[in-house]
Design a protein around this nucleic acid. Structure first.
Lengths: 222, 222
DNA sequence: AACAGATTTTAGTCCCATCTAATTTCAAAT
DNA sequence: ATTTGAAATTAGATGGGACTAAAATCTGTT
């Protein structure tokens, strides 16, 4: 069994990898540890063939490393959903709890909750849940702020970095599947007036960068 | 936060404490580690005021140490019950899973599952669940083997050390609350014929030492 | 081409929790 | 009272994973 520390490194590298190779400093920041510690661990991970590492040039996951990262992410997202659906956790508390549980739950446990949840595809923030084999949907939603007046969009995913922001989303009832019409974007990166759930709301420009949406295609009645 | 190792030591010492002070070797056996390691840790625990420790004379929990041990045991037993009741785990698998989860679940998590379980008093093996303040029922049931022909007893608790035995109990439907009549004890520590759930069964002498029961007092109809 | 500043790595330390081997202490029996 | 065998402790080592301080490397700018 890989240590919790190693699992956390792999998970972090996976998340950061969207922007090409991953720098020592980026990992250090994400995990709140010193750069020197990261260098040390990257060498270990490289010797275990979990990452490809070149001094001063950053790091990438190997296939093996990615597989493990996705396994942990699978645990995390299933747990988040279970905490929310079965235990009624508020959105802003699920992340931390899942971060601790993800390293210790057994396959039996995961199988049970997956069944109970009905083989879900997305976690409560809208992230896709990797399959047992490590397949994961590639999603390409964009931040709300990128869209234009009059656009009607559907929320696909919320950024989950800031618990307070999540708490705000929950209070506002801005959640995955929410359908939003952009009424007005104030100039100079000002607030955005939107319409959803039957009323107008104003949301800040910064926050709107953390709501990831797609253009909403009206479905035909059947 | 105390390390998982420390939590495990305290839990183990608590369990062994029924027989007065606890020896280094007993702890070592229980945790599957060397005696030398235990001596080292006992010194640390003593310096943290979690145990009273005298070289060569064994160890006892302080009140503070006992409080923490009971907290962990509370986690463990609530989790065992939840795994069984809510997730349908088989009896023999709940212990290991709970051992891993008990160190990482939050108070929020425990509160939720306690609610869902309806503030239970016993875990699936029949052990009392400590309260939040660390109060725990003192129970005084005796092994089935101690009773005599004709006695009618109620199962209070099953020994949870051997998963295979638990699996056997489950298959036999010998569980806490089961009412058993002792029909015949074969001589020379032979097997015991018992009657319960409408049929006779024969159980081995060894196994009967792991079923803890009390004399059953017939309740009046009301 | 060389320098400045940021990034990264090296060198050396620390703490936790374990280990083995060697030694000490205890307690029971002669 | 001495011996002896078990139990416990000490001594010293190891690996994991973090740290700080110092040195090395990279990159962008002049």
């Amino acid at each position: 069994m890989l240590s919790q520390a190693i699992q956390d490194y792999l998970k972090t590298i996976y998340k950061l990898e969207e922007d090409g190779t991953v720098s020592t400093t980026a990992i250090a920041k994400e995990l709140n540890i010193s750069g020197a510690s990261v260098t040390g661990m990257l060498k270990r991970l490289a010797s275990m063939k979990l990452v490809d590492y070149n001094s001063y040039k950053g790091v990438r996951l190997t296939n093996e490393g990615r597989k493990i990262a996705l396994e942990i992410i699978r645990h995390h997202r299933l747990l988040e959903l279970y905490l929310r659906e079965a235990l009624g956790f508020p959105l802003e508390k699920i992340h931390d709890e899942a971060c601790r549980l993800e390293h210790v739950v057994s396959q039996d446990f995961l199988q049970k909750i997956e069944e109970i949840l009905g083989n879900p595809e997305y976690d409560p923030h809208g992230h896709p849940i990797p399959s047992k084999d490590g397949d994961i949907e590639i999603s390409n939603e964009k931040p709300l702020v990128n869209f234009r007046n009059g656009d009607v969009v559907i929320v696909k995913r919320l950024s989950d970095h800031d618990p307070q922001m999540l708490s705000y989303f929950e209070k506002m009832k801005i959640l995955p599947s929410t359908i939003i019409r952009i009424v007005d974007k104030a100039p100079f990166n000002g607030p955005i007036t939107v319409f959803f759930n039957g009323e107008s709301q104003i949301i800040g420009n910064e926050i709107s960068k953390n709501i990831f949406v797609e253009l909403y295609e009206e479905k035909e009645e059947n």
